[in-house]
Design a binder for these strands. Structure first.
Lengths: 202, 202
DNA sequence: GCCGGAAATAGAACACGTTCTATAAACTTC
DNA sequence: GAAGTTTATAGAACGTGTTCTATTTCCGGC
């Protein structure tokens, strides 16, 4: 089914690229993706345009990322990691898990809403991903989960906390999608998230 | 943006087609869609193949459903309505909302899992839909919400119950997608749903 | 029955994701 | 530093969703 799997996976993992030139190419590709997505959303991330902008050949792009969905989900992971790092450098205010989770949620949500096109591109790729992008999806899911468990407590999360974090993640994503597709306003999203977290943590 | 909107909407609404021939065409199209999706999932629902199988021209197909996503989401609505009707004829067992919701959830989930390809096609279309399919999406969302609120109580749902139903719907969909993309087993899904409903209703 | 406009048809055409081919450049290893 | 291998390049080619065109069929009002 996928003859060159191991090589491709190695390239996708990203941390372990043989040469500096390759790490650079990869970065240029992700940057181009984010730039195009920020400007025009999912549809504007056209593989030929990404290749052009990143100054690589189309074939090279496909060697690094086996599909548009992989590309966008990997970029989402990159963005979430950035957000996570920023969050780690912040002291999250609030006395209860409820307050702290809401703070984190609000912060990230507003961050994403500041760049609607990018958010649209990434959430659509994320939810459209098929089995072949399972690894990337799991990576993002774990990032999200840990984001919320960290907000609940500094200690290692309990199973229940993980479950709560997953539920919050699901609701969060679904509301982000609703916002992106104009079926919900930013206020709707904030209200629903607040309500959800209340149901789960109060 | 969409010059022929009103006409298209009329056709899409489906209940109000001018002639019997048109209602028939529409039904043939949805049937063909479901048949193809059942056999090979999202990718097998090719517009030319749907048109062929429904015995309509490609242009006609597009007159009735402006995109593949509209087509699949409308089919999902049809299927959910069927499930809802079946459920309405059933007396849902269980003394608490918790038990009753779990029953409904388990029933529908197993129903969908009996036809994995169809489920894959529909959930992917649903989550990939963009703003232009907002109406269809809302229709399906409402169906889902009412499914769960009905399980909670026979009376008109409170705001809190609606909120809970929405959260359950979000988690349900997300787990269905995880199952469809092989990131979760049927058991995983059942466990997570149970856990979620417990958190919300116990 | 006939006419005019709407709807349906067959099929070409186009756009973009993806794959393939042939060639060139960049590396490894000796 | 030359030979062989891997990686990158340019661009053609292909598949499928979507749109367009020209023609034909259908349907409601006369």
């Amino acid at each position: 089914m996928s003859p060159s799997k191991s090589r491709t996976d190695a390239l996708m993992a990203g941390d372990e690229l043989s040469s500096a030139a390759q790490r650079e190419r990869r970065k240029r590709i992700v940057d181009a993706t984010i730039a195009l997505a920020s400007k025009g959303g999912f549809d504007a991330v056209q593989m030929r345009a990404v290749a052009d902008r990143a100054d690589v050949a189309l074939g090279t792009l496909y060697r690094y990322f086996p599909s548009k969905v992989h590309l966008l989900v990997s970029s989402l992971a990159v963005e979430l990691e950035r957000a996570q790092e920023k969050m780690d450098r912040t002291t999250v205010p609030g006395d209860s898990p409820y307050e702290r989770v809401l703070f984190v949620l609000g912060r990230i949500t507003r961050g994403l809403q500041r760049n609607p096109h990018l958010t649209e591109a990434m959430t659509r790729a994320f939810t459209f991903a098929d089995a072949s992008a399972g690894a990337e999806i799991d990576r993002v899911s774990l990032l999200m989960e840990s984001m919320f468990t960290k907000a609940m407590s500094d200690d290692a999360p309990t199973e229940e906390q993980k479950a709560i974090a997953r539920v919050i993640g699901d609701v969060w994503l679904s509301n982000l999608v609703a916002w992106v597709t104009r079926r919900a306003t930013a206020t709707d999203v904030a209200n629903r998230l607040e309500l959800t977290v209340r149901l789960l943590l109060k």
